[in-house]
Design a protein around this nucleic acid. Structure first.
Lengths: 236, 236
DNA sequence: GCTAACAGGATTGTCAACAATGAATAGCGA
DNA sequence: TCGCTATTCATTGTTGACAATCCTGTTAGC
């Protein structure tokens, strides 16, 4: 059983998935790091994994590559993207541009049901964290940002945040210190408190600090060569 | 000669275009309103217009639809998107989230060549404006925002701004008062001055005001029903 | 023993024929 | 004459086969 077959765990429904669902599934698999950077996504294995034809798969891969989540190499196939440190910088810069504003909007627009939903989500995060279920913790902490964008009720922002959260998971996989969790859930708690008390500026500032925290825990050295020099690595 | 054939004016090169180029060409055609909202983009005419096979066209249309610039209706074909007033709100909201920050970054990163290039661009804008070349004026004023994103040197922001500028052109085509130009080029001048004097906060504020100006010149009434209730309209 | 060319296999890219759906029109009946 | 239905046509969606490309393992030659 290879990596790719873990993307689709069981297909109870016999109705065919469309491209958006396949894209969503691959997003999720990347977010909780079942698909590490550089994983080859061959058409055949994806066809088998999702039980769809080759056309669907190719269209999904095209969509994923248009969001920089998959690298499509002509005649060589599709690979889960391996962001360079330069791309990592761009991703965090973009998140810092958008997400504080998303938080601001979320404060203004959150209904009572939204607040309840977020609170339940935070409980799940805490449980995953305390239970040392690292994979769940990562997925849930990414999902928190997506949920905020949904509360903010702006589909453009939602789409961009989904992309950036996914790419951040790849970045953490490459540049993150192993073992260190990426999102501190206390940060999420504080943002939620700002939502509850309708403190837009506070939410924006907390989100900004939160993203900075994540970025600081990465080791984005100088511009890492995308083509790793093996000779240097194995020189004694 | 229908609308679509105006998208590709002459193909001097015999090398085939790839999807990204086709997408870019259609973006441009939409920006300067050669392709109005609702225009049918049939596969056959696009194949002819660009001189490529049906596969390329279908992939391009998929990419365009993933950016909400084209509406892909199953078994009915592709149409240039007609944003609802709700979508228009989202687009401007997203532009207000991103572009002031783009302007800020552009201030920090603009080289002398960048400033020169922008200055020359503004001259072109003025010429088009004075010469009453409406189509050029629209294209150039949209391009100014894209150029800023290029100067800001963030590919995520660049991609999003390109999408949003294009969709704004559609929105202006639908909700804009006819004859009124969308971007006042004095606004662009002021933003450029902020760049030149390295005034990041000023640039951000001016960009925000500028976007508000554009939005104010639209007639985004209440939430226009996508399915218009004819009974209400004809009730006496 | 090492390098380089070659062949085999596997994978991706493309094309053309076919199926399926939707729109338009013509025909029929009231 | 109007309205409904059925047939036709055009367009999109899908499938399969084929072509092109790349990777790998092998073999011949130096």
């Amino acid at each position: 059983m290879n990596n790719v077959s873990q993307v689709a765990e069981a297909e109870p429904q016999d109705e065919e998935l469309d491209e958006e669902e396949i894209v969503e599934r691959i997003f999720e698999a990347i977010i909780d790091q079942r698909l590490p950077p550089g994983t080859k996504l061959s058409e055949a294995s994806l066809c088998e994994a999702f039980g769809v034809g080759r056309m669907r798969v190719r269209r999904s891969l095209l969509l994923l590559s248009s969001r920089e989540v998959v690298s499509l190499q002509p005649n060589r196939g599709a690979y889960v993207a391996s962001p360079s440190s330069e791309q990592a910088r761009e991703v965090f810069e973009a998140r810092l541009m958008i997400e504080p504003n998303v938080a601001r909007l979320a404060v203004e627009r959150a209904s009572d049901e939204d607040l309840l939903m977020l609170q339940q989500h935070l409980q799940l995060e805490h449980q995953a964290h305390r239970g040392n279920r690292r994979r769940d913790a990562i997925r849930l902490s990414g999902q928190f940002h997506v949920l905020l964008a949904e509360v903010a009720d702006n589909s453009v922002a939602l789409r961009v945040v989904k992309e950036l959260v996914t790419r951040t998971s790849l970045i953490i996989g490459i540049f993150g210190s192993p073992g260190v969790s990426n999102c501190r859930d206390e940060d999420h708690d504080e943002i939620f408190t700002a939502l509850r008390t309708r403190d837009s500026e506070g939410a924006a500032r907390l989100m900004k600090d939160h993203l900075h925290h994540i970025q600081e825990h990465l080791e984005l050295g100088g511009p890492t060569e995308s083509t790793i020099d093996l000779a240097t690595i194995f020189r004694k």
